[in-house]
Nucleic acid binder design. Structure first.
Length: 115
RNA sequence: AAAGCAGGCAGAAUGGUCGCUCGUUCAAGGAUAUCUGGACGGGAGGAAAGUCCGAGCUCCACAGGACAGAGUGCUGGGUAACCCCCAGUCCCGGUGACGGGAAGGAAAGUGCCACAGAAAAUAGACCGCCCCUAAAGAUGGGUAAGGGUGAAACGGUGAGGUAAGAGCUCACCAGUCUUGAUGGUGACAUUGAGAGCUUGGUAAACCCCCACUCGGAGCAAGACCAAAUAGAGGAGCAUAAGUAGGGUUGUCCGCUCGUAGCUCCCGGGUAGGUUGCUUGAGGUGCUGGGUAACCAGUGCUUUAGAUGAAUGACCAUUGCCCUGAACAAUGUUUUAGGGAACAGAACUCGGCUUACGGUCUGCUUUAGCA
């Protein structure tokens, strides 16, 4: 039985937490995104999203964030456990749709070495 | 039918699966705060945008005045207010529907007027015309009527006048100033009389003039709770010797301060949280007033509140548009593929501006048919 919910505590919301993840996390680059993974000590997976104004206007940025949230919510079983996962959208990612985003990210997480 | 002008309208719908956020309510644990789960209900726009004006609200400042600075600038009305809206006046553009106008002052000062042109503003003679020296040429003088340039050339037309000309004189016209009549709340319109003899444009050029208006910062405003941590202070317990330690010029004496640890209070306000936060100059129907903007009365209605920032993702069906194909053959048909703009609330309103795919209504001009 999959847990497809996404509660508030499964989100990274504090500026200081973002800074810690930026500083200490492991960075990976895919076609449209930069992924930063950082082991946390809270025992759950947490999502952080950063979409700058280079991506587009508010509508485009909202759409990218919503797609990333949707991917995180539906694929928590495929992602590293007990980690903060931060997605940074690169310019040009606003043209993506959900199926290509899902393929890109699933491919990335399957190739990710387990440490 | 084409081209155009003005205005209005809504910004695809329904269902399913998985979610987000707020509210109400139920259940379980717990003394509460709160946490978890279920049910029900609400959940982006016409511009939410740009942040360009005007307000409400909040805090700060504030005797009064002057200067500076900023803004506004035809008239009347509307409004909480406005650089907004409505109605009008005048000017400009368009065949027209209609559109546009920062539309006070250039006879106060300073500045500017490209190119062309002789000359772009108290000046000016390039060609031409006229006069003088016998004639021609040249020089000098007179002349703004004619040519040519320009966006703009120092009033226009006609007559008189003159060496040639010129408001030099006269008539009419235009303009300026003064002054009356009629209509209008008024901008102004229509019209009469007189003077004078004619004055370039630009104030969306100025730290120019005139009249009027104007404190500053903004919800990250402000209010409250409050870990952490710096520490003046207070109380209690423990400690007992005025000890350790500090100050008093380097040292000694003396003098003086002084009770270290623990707990609590006070205090401060960081991280974080709560509030401000959505009922408001609200929307809408009817009636009345008003050309209208809008106002008054009355009934009904309550419609997002996030904060690394919710309002979504995917699928199906139907409708719309485009393209191709088919036919019981040119259409309210069938079928395949594609498309659906601009754009995301962030304290709240009133406007303006900009972006954008449609659709409907009325009107104008042109062409054709009857």
């Amino acid at each position: 039985m999959g847990n497809f919910r996404l509660r508030k505590r499964e989100r990274v919301t504090k500026k200081t937490e973002f800074q810690i993840i930026f500083k200490n996390g492991a960075r990976y680059i895919t076609r449209n995104f930069i992924v930063i993974i950082y082991q946390n000590n809270q025992g759950l997976q947490r999502l952080g999203v950063s979409v700058s104004k280079k991506v587009g206007g508010a509508v485009k940025r909202n759409r990218v964030k919503r797609l990333l949230r949707e991917f995180f919510r539906l694929n928590k079983g495929q992602l590293p456990e007990a980690s903060d996962i931060l997605f940074i959208a690169k310019p040009g990612s606003s043209q993506i749709n959900y199926s290509t985003l899902s393929e890109e990210m699933l491919g990335f997480f399957q190739r990710l070495p387990v440490d």
